[in-house]
């Protein structure tokens, strides 16, 4: 068995305490929520923190509050994926998010894993998610300790894949992330839109400093309206098995339809095809403000599929994943428009 290396565990009871600990231990410390991503990575020495700042005892991270005035939801970063998947109000108001959370891994991991951890999930690559000895024998790569990318040797940057199921949904729903960091004795906070939180660089994929703590996620309201008017949203995941597998392709969609059925607004975000969720602006433009004819949908699918430039660093062959993009996006559209 690979064992966890030794570390000191801290259990702060407030955000202030947590960020203060991070300030104190600096690079030697990391935040840990459910640990379902971090612990396997520590066993394989992608990370070697001496101090872990546990987030499970901080009440603010567990809030799940719908505003009185109906302007949206504040979701604490520490809420478990199972709760996100099963909470009746999330199921009703943000079905795409509930679905994405429900499709992560397996029940045990969804009980431990948090939404915050999922949104900060490390990028993945066949050459990176390996043990130390495995990586060392081949030679370390760009993402960690090395200078070559084994997937594309000429690439100046790491191409590891953003593999979070919930991240594309957050981008599609234009969520905002609230981050806290130490500022001397005090706590500094800032708000970042989800789309700016992610960067398309596998080694440096979050617009977040190491000492920033993701406190909560703020989701605007989406009225679903009746009889096909209002917002419809969905998340669809391509994976080999019905459990455990990370997405090979995730498609988050949100459409607002007019009374006449035309598309008023379209949001299309692809997951697991780049180092960040990719918003399909062009496809959105094609659908925006027009009737949803088969031709336009097909054009939008093609525009979206163009974004998917899979590399040989995840499950399934390149050519398959390339082929799948348009077929799968078509199905995703069909599914959401039927909802």
């Amino acid at each position: 068995m690979l064992r966890l290396p030794p570390f000191e565990y801290h259990a702060p009871k407030s955000i202030a305490e947590a960020v203060a600990l991070k300030a104190e231990y600096g690079e030697l410390a990391m935040y840990v929520a459910g640990g379902t991503d971090l612990f396997p990575n520590m066993k394989r020495q992608q990370f070697t923190p001496q101090n872990l700042i546990g987030l499970r005892k901080i009440p603010e991270l567990f809030q799940l509050v719908f505003d009185q005035d109906g302007t949206g939801l504040t979701l604490g970063a520490g809420v478990s994926l199972n709760e996100v998947a099963e909470h009746p109000d999330i199921l009703k108001n943000y079905p795409a998010l509930a679905k994405a959370a429900s499709l992560v891994s397996a029940p045990q991991l969804r009980n431990m894993g948090t939404i915050g951890g999922n949104l900060c999930l490390d990028t993945r690559c066949t050459y990176y998610n390996q043990s130390y000895q495995w990586r060392k024998a081949l030679g370390f790569c760009l993402k960690k300790s090395g200078d070559t990318c084994w997937v594309a040797r000429s690439s100046p940057k790491c191409l590891a894949v953003s593999s979070s199921d919930c991240a594309p949904v957050m981008v599609a729903l234009e969520a905002e992330f609230c981050l806290a960091s130490p500022a001397g004795e005090a706590v500094k906070t800032r708000i970042v839109p989800a789309s700016e939180f992610y960067k398309n660089d596998g080694a440096n994929f979050l617009n977040k400093t190491a000492d920033e703590l993701l406190v909560s996620i703020r989701l605007p309201t989406y009225y679903s309206g009746k009889s096909g008017i209002g917002w419809k949203m969905n998340y669809r995941k391509l994976s080999r098995r019905n459990a455990i597998d990370f997405p090979l392709l995730g498609v988050a969609t949100a459409f607002r339809q007019k009374d006449n059925g035309d598309c008023a607004e379209a949001r299309i975000v692809l997951g697991a095809v780049g180092s960040s969720p990719l918003r399909a602006d062009e496809a959105e433009k094609i659908l925006q403000d027009g009737s949803l004819t088969l031709e336009r949908i097909e054009d939008a699918v093609q525009a979206a599929a163009k974004l998917a430039k899979p590399l040989d660093n995840t499950d399934m062959t390149l050519s398959y994943r390339k082929k799948m993009a348009s077929r799968f996006i078509t199905e995703a559209f069909n599914e959401v428009l039927k909802v």
């Binding site: 397996a106 066949t126 998610n129 024998a137 098995r241 019905n242 459990a243 455990i244």
Partner: peptide, 27 residues
């Protein structure tokens, strides 16, 4: 349907239960 030890030049590419795909109860 799902299991295969993938080797590249004698090296196992999927030596773990995330990448080596056992058939799960959900399947």
């Amino acid at each position: 349907l799902s299991e295969e030890v993938v080797i590249k030049e004698g090296k196992v590419m999927n030596p773990n239960f995330v990448d080596y795909r056992l058939f799960t109860s959900a399947d």
